[in-house]
Design a protein around this nucleic acid. Structure first.
Lengths: 204, 204
DNA sequence: GTCTATATCCAGATAGAC
DNA sequence: GTCTATCTGGATATAGAC
């Protein structure tokens, strides 16, 4: 096990160590997601989380600075996925079919992981506040979503508020009353038609 | 202070005691609502609640059997108010104006107390389960609401799901993004028109 | 890098004195 | 009817041994 290289051996070892550390941290965060899905977001305890990855709770502090830091990492991870989804939105011009498709994809994203939805879009974890960096990312992603909706070409801000309410309502009903199903998700296309017809936008 | 009546004096005293007890219990429940509005529903602690009504936490157990019992009393109280609102819905025939008015009142009820909304309609208090009696009341009230919406005369269940999604979405956006304001609440009338026009119901 | 041991704090709930 | 005292159990987090 002794080194046979002279200069960059310690550096390489440090890199390996770092990589290993990052892997363990990722494993911890994955386990935290799964635990949250079973026990609820607020139900994550450091004891139980440690047990899931084969450590005592205290040892986790070598990888996350605090419980808030853990939540923050999950928050960031969630918004990175959301950001990728928003970035995949095709460039204008926007058609009805594209709008339906993209809003459908957004709702699917929201609905596919209730715990993630709760962490990213609701404010229900006691005492959790995202770090400035993570918060900035969230603001960015949501601004991107707004921009993309602006391409519909409706000027009335009230109309846009109504659209976000429809999307939120479908999501919220789906999560609350038919989790895992599609009773409300499948109404998205019809809802978009209803909305666009009412405001005479994006004619077929 | 000695009794000057012979038979029903002890009974009257017992009635007074009972009445006093009920008053104290009501005071505790009121304080719990207020505490929940400040600290969140999950933030109610028996210690702090006791302090609010001038008792030690332990003494509360003379009035509520457990913390779950306290939540249950609040849950029941909330659904009693909701039930009264639903019962006030006028008899058919239903007009567009009446529908707008009643749905507006319902949304206003939901929005006027976020904590109550959370307790009644979301499932976010860890380990709280309503008693069978309270749950039955809730089912009753919601069934009444459904009946009343049935009077619109749209047969398509998907359409009714879309309507509930719209109402939920307006409520949810209002609570999340403009608490205390009316940015989404005021869109209810327009939303109802959009919905009814789309399905050709309740012509003006 | 993980452990044991521990500090600190808070929760809900019960027993029994006054 | 409210108190003091106490039980039980859980949480996050730190210090220091190995």
């Amino acid at each position: 096990m002794s080194g046979n290289q002279t200069i960059d051996e310690p550096t390489a070892a440090a890199g390996r160590r770092e990589r290993r550390r990052a892997e363990t941290r990722a494993e911890i965060i994955d386990a935290a997601w799964q635990l949250a899905r079973e026990e609820g977001l607020a139900g994550i305890s450091m004891r139980e989380l440690g047990a899931r990855v084969g450590m005592r709770a205290q040892s986790l502090y070598g990888y996350v600075a605090s419980k808030n830091d853990l939540y923050d990492a999950m928050f960031r991870q969630g918004y990175e996925v959301a950001g990728a989804l928003v970035a995949s939105w095709p460039a204008p011009p926007l058609t009805r079919a594209v709008l339906k498709d993209r809003l459908g994809a957004w709702i699917a994203f929201c609905v596919e992981d209730p715990v993630r939805y709760q962490l990213l879009f609701q404010r229900t974890i006691p005492d959790f506040e995202p770090s400035p960096a993570s918060y900035a990312l969230a603001v960015d992603v949501l601004a991107g979503l707004g921009e993309v909706l602006g391409a519909i070409g409706i000027d009335d801000p009230a109309a846009m508020d109504l659209l976000t309410a429809i999307v939120t309502g479908l999501t919220s009903q789906q999560l609350a009353n038919d989790p895992g199903g599609d009773r409300w998700v499948r109404l998205a296309g019809e809802a978009v038609d209803m909305f666009l017809d009412h405001y005479g936008a994006l004619p077929t």
